[in-house]
Every structure is written in structure tokens, then in C-alpha cells.
Amino acid sequence: MNIFDIIGPVMVGPSSSHTAGAVRLGNAARAILGQPVIEATIGLHGSFAQTGRGHGTDLALVAGLMGWPTDDLRIPQAFDYAREAGLHYFFRTIDAGDAAHPNFVKFWLTGQNGVKSQVAGASIGGGRVVISEVDDFPLAFTGDFPTILTLHEDRPGAVAEVTGILSKCGVNIAQMKVFRKNKGGLASMVLETDQPLAEADLAAVAGLPMIKTVRCIHAISGQGV
């Protein structure tokens, strides 16, 4: 903890959890899709569904999907800008169960070239967020660090090959976790790193035989001033 955790972030009001956190969830979802969003169905759960409109949570989520920062003064007009940009958005209320965080959202996204992604996460207070699901994979990362997200075959050596490349290019891993749906099937690695991964190194990871896809999400929090 340091002073910038207490003084800041600079944000558009009225609520750090319902507004700033919602922008960051949108930012994360767009980064995971990896391209401009043309269609978004946004499922709101719990407090996001109940008091979200009064907090501008809906505007903030759409602003986040357009890649805007938490302090963008256009956020109150985000719907108009989205229409202009050709982003079609639909809201619905979802029930993610009692165990889900009260500020939980799920995005079903379609990108410019037809790519689809599902992303879910929660705003956990003070503008901080946790992504808990990507394309049906349950996982967990905060976006506080540059994050590498893989989809790979669940076979021995997959983790070593990826971490080998990071080691060679001097990228330090802060946290890492591996998730899979079933043994020997598809798995996902989440690597949170201290340094961002260069394009060429990302391409090297993508070129590994066991890797199906790899995505790189730059740190989305701590935008401050």
C-alpha cells in the first residue's frame, strides 16, 4: 500500500465500486477480446443490476468497452458515443447465484472481425476489479499487472515452454496459475508479470506447438494521473 491507494484514483463519479470499477471491467473485457467491440450483451447481477443505473454503472461499462479511462469526462454520454462508433449494446439482469460478488457482470462480446468472447468479473471496492471467467474458463486475475492469458493443450511441458520464453526475454512473473476443464483437454494459464511482454516475444509464445491462443492484457488499474 502507498499514498496513491489512498489519494486517487482520478475518476468520474459517483462511486468507486459502481462507476470506476465498472469502467475497468469494461477495459479488461475489451482487452481480452483484443479488438474493437461491435456487439455486447451485458448481464448485470446483484447490486450492479439493482442500483447500477443510478450510479451510471451501465454507462461506465460501455465506456470501458470503448477503452476509455476511469476519468473520461465523456462517460455520462457513453451511449451516444457507442452508437456513433457502431457498438451495439444490450443489458439484461442475470442471476449468477448467491456465491457471486454483488457487483458482478458478464459480457458476451463480438469483435470487429467476428471473434467472440465471454468475460465475467466483479468490482470489489475502491475501483479494484477481479476477472473470474474467460470463455467458460474459471480463473482469476486483477489487471493490476500486465497479464498473459493462454489457451493450450493440457500436456507436460506447456508451462515450462512459456515460462522459458519469459525468462529469456527478462520478464519476471509476479503470479501464475493454471486452470483446465478436464485432464488432457484444453487448459488456460494466467501469468501476471512485472514487465509487459513485447510483440515479438508474444509471437514466440503464440508459435509454441501446444499453444492454441495467447492474449496479452496490459495493466488496467492504477491509471490515476
Binding site: 489512498i6 486517487g8 463519479g13 470506476a20 469526462l73 455520462p76
Partner: peptide
């Protein structure tokens, strides 16, 4: 009031007490 109107503020320590 600026915060409640979705104006830009510094959360210090929170938006509600800004």
C-alpha cells in the same frame, strides 16, 4: 455534488467522501 453528477473527482479516500 460534482461527484453525484458524474463529474471528475479524486477519490480521497473514496468517491463518496471526496
Amino acid at each position: 455534488e460534482a461527484n453525484a453528477a458524474m463529474g471528475r473527482i479524486v477519490a480521497a479516500p473514496t468517491a463518496g467522501s471526496s
